[in-house]
């Protein structure tokens, strides 16, 4: 769609008003860019580096989808969204996919009318406290002031947890992760609570990380995953199966190192179906045969993406834990490519 700024909305509106809303896939292809909602800077998950290139665990999902759909993993317009604005941005069509450490909950799925296409990180909410506080369990936090991001599941879990345990707390609502860190370090709140992955990243950035501990209690389930709008199932399928392709690639040992080799054809039919040398999976999705190959080549398979962005060798240093493949005792599982 080539429209000049000067013509503005009016013409476009009058020209397209009659035509029924086209599918997201067509929109993305026409635009030549995927609009992807990410967080406004969360270590390991999404942030631009010194050259202005976005990187991170959530960013990798956006890139994989862009690679699958557009054949170019740089054809992504990243839209940094806060916890509060993310859902309006997705619902209004400002972004095509939201990959912003967002927890899959019933009300978001049903009431806000989104489709979570899967889970890319199984998280849980924890508490970060200064060691000097001498607290060893979250149950001892009676009367504590708690820094918490507004508009998140964190806020609701906290209320539930303290109610169940019959203790009280005083919330200090903050807008973003960096603000939370600042207030916590300045002593404006006794404890900081959010998703465990973010707590680990936050703690890693402290000057003396050893002076702070994450309490053993994990008070909630936070399955984080990418989501799309209700109503465009074809588009949802594409994002879902891109994620599944990354997971299956790890399961079948397809890595960015050996993918060229494997895509010449192997004697494992599942690998061949993923890489498009057998069957017509791509065609069913409305894409070409190489879609999954490109998605995997974009940033490696699920395990490679994990290790490169948040794994044990990075400053954040998260272990796979629940996020290991189901074959290795974790929960990460992809339905078959058949």
């Amino acid at each position: 769609m080539k429209k000049s700024v000067f013509i503005g909305a009016l013409t476009v509106a009058s020209l397209t008003a009659g035509i029924a809303a086209a599918g997201t896939l067509d929109d993305v292809k026409a635009r030549g860019k995927l609009n992807c909602g990410v967080s406004t800077g969360l270590v390991g998950f999404a942030s631009p580096d010194a050259n202005g290139k976005w990187e991170g665990y959530d960013v990798a999902i956006c890139r994989a989808v862009a690679a699958a759909v557009l054949g170019d993993n740089t054809a992504v317009e990243f839209v940094p969204l806060s916890s509060k604005t993310r859902f309006t941005a997705l619902a209004s069509g400002e972004v095509d996919v939201l990959a912003r450490n967002t927890t899959w909950t019933l009300s978001r799925d049903v009431d806000l009318k989104f489709d979570f296409v899967g889970v890319n990180y199984y998280d849980g909410q924890g508490f970060l406290i200064p060691k000097s506080m001498g607290v060893t369990s979250a149950k001892e936090l009676d009367g504590a002031t708690v820094c918490i991001q507004s508009g998140t599941t964190t806020e609701l879990n906290l209320a539930d947890y303290f109610r169940v345990n019959g203790i009280s707390y005083e919330p200090v609502p903050v807008e973003g992760n960096s603000e939370a860190q600042k207030l916590y370090l300045a002593g404006a709140c006794d404890t900081l609570t959010t998703d465990g992955s973010a707590l680990a990243a936050t703690r890693a950035a402290f000057e003396k990380p050893d002076d702070h501990i994450v309490l053993p209690e994990i008070i909630s389930k936070e399955p984080l995953g990418p989501l799309v709008r209700h109503g465009d199932n074809e588009w949802g399928d594409i994002v879902r199966w891109t994620l599944n392709a990354l997971i299956s690639a790890e399961e079948y040992d397809i890595t960015s190192a050996n993918i060229e080799e494997l895509s010449k054809g192997t004697n494992n039919p599942e690998i061949n179906r993923i890489l498009g040398t057998e069957g017509n999976m791509g065609e069913m999705l409305g894409l070409d045969a190489d879609w999954a190959k490109r998605a995997i080549m974009s940033g490696g398979n699920f395990g490679e993406i994990f290790e490169a962005n948040i794994g044990e060798k990075t400053p954040i240093g998260l272990s796979r834990g629940l996020n290991a493949l189901w074959t290795e005792g974790g929960l990460i599982y992809s339905p078959p490519f058949r």
Partner: peptide, 21 residues
Amino acid sequence: IALSDPLGWVKLIQGNAEWNG
């Protein structure tokens, strides 16, 4: 509203492992 003005950029930069904090 997700435009990256100077303050938006402050957050983006803090989201980097190198400069978090």
